[in-house]
């Protein structure tokens, strides 16, 4: 019996060691957790060469995946690149460290338009990395009506030709916007009205997708889809009939920004990494590879004129002024959940 107990204990210990993995070595490290396919391919190598800091790089698919993993602990990431509303949530939950701008001189390159956002009013925790608008991508050979309003998504002529987003926040947000409400509404009556509006649209909708939108629009499976400007640029390169428009009612524009979580073990390396990402030539590499718009003034200056002026990636200020950045709805997220579940229950 006694021998068995020690055996059990030894095996248990062995397990724990195996699960915790290897310890730290002396080499300076920075653990980066970013969206998939969201950095130019050679940037990490350049950073390692110039600074001698080794990068361990991991990727996530959604803000929510990232949040669950960081919240659960275990992995001590140094740099995260979440979106606006998620940063707000993480600030609220005291999960982020304040940045030391002395270590990030290149932060001065950031266009003031993208600073002092509601998710981080004093820019204490985050430095913008990329931004984009939400809009409609459409096939001009299939759509005869002008696509300058969200109402076109409720037009019977395009029954089963419309792709909406499989994302409660965005799809409900569009319905709110059509009804003249804020995309950040937390009013139960407004959300209920948005749900009714979306129920009326359901027969016209081909599908609610996120990742598949790209290939479906390229192959002409649908006439219209909701997508982000960064993705729209990539899609339009592969099918010349496609155009992108941000409706006049206004839309969402979102900012992904770099932050340092409280669990970080290498804060200075993290700041060195963020500083590197803000250097105009590096920011240019990234925006040219990812196709999302850069908030970095130095990099913007270096962009070719046709990208600056085609109205997709860098729309007029008047368009952006009508757009809202998402705000974390807090507990009101359950109202969105309810509206979304009811939309698909029948």
């Amino acid at each position: 019996m006694k021998k068995g107990f020690w055996m059990l204990l030894a095996m248990g210990l062995l397990f724990c060691v195996a699960l915790t993995g290897c310890g730290d070595s002396d080499q300076p490290m920075v653990y980066v957790y970013n969206w998939g396919d969201y950095i130019a391919e050679d940037v990490i190598d350049l950073f390692e060469e110039e600074t001698g800091i080794k990068v361990r790089y991991e990727m996530f698919d959604t803000n929510e995946d990232m949040y669950v993993k960081v919240k659960a602990g275990g992995n001590a990431y140094d740099v995260l690149i979440p979106s606006d509303y998620m940063i707000e949530k993480m600030v609220k939950e005291d999960m982020l460290l304040e940045l030391n701008y002395d270590n990030i001189p290149n932060a001065a390159q950031t266009d003031p338009k993208f600073l002092n956002q509601p998710y981080d009013a004093e820019n204490k925790y985050s430095i913008p990395y990329m931004w984009c608008t939400l809009g409609i991508i459409y096939d001009q050979t299939m759509v005869t009506d002008p696509v300058d309003t969200w109402e076109v998504l409720w037009n019977d002529n395009y029954a089963k030709e419309i792709i909406m987003l499989d994302s409660p926040r965005d799809t409900i947000g569009i319905a709110l916007k059509v009804l003249g409400y804020s995309m950040n509404s937390t009013d139960p009556a407004e959300l209920d009205a948005a749900k009714v509006k979306l129920q009326a649209q359901r027969p016209l909708v081909l599908a609610y997708l996120v990742d598949q939108t790209k290939e479906k629009m390229i192959s002409g499976e649908a006439a219209m889809a909701i997508t982000w400007s960064g993705d729209a640029i990539t899609i339009m390169e592969q099918n010349e009939n496609l155009r992108y428009s941000v409706p006049k009612e206004g839309s969402n524009y979102s900012i992904d920004a770099m932050v340092i979580p409280k669990t970080s073990q290498n804060k200075e390396n993290a700041e060195a990494f963020i500083n590197f990402m803000c250097r105009p030539d590096i920011a240019l590499k990234n925006t040219e590879y990812i196709r999302y718009s850069t908030p970095n003034m130095g990099a913007y200056e270096l962009l070719p004129d046709e990208i600056k002026n085609d109205g997709v990636g860098y729309p007029e200020d008047s368009v952006i002024e009508k757009c809202e950045v998402y705000v974390d709805p807090g507990d009101a997220i359950s109202l969105y959940d309810k509206a979304w579940t009811e939309l698909f229950a029948d």
Binding site: T62, V68, V205, A207, D337, T341, F344, A345
Partner: peptide, 25 residues
């Protein structure tokens, strides 16, 4: 159901995923 149903045929599995990843409940 997500891939072939285009997100329109919510099943219990989708509901569970939504609760954990999106609502956080």
């Amino acid at each position: 159901s997500r891939l072939l149903g285009g997100g329109q045929f919510s099943l219990i599995g989708n509901l569970i995923e939504q609760q954990f990843l999106w609502v956080g409940d």
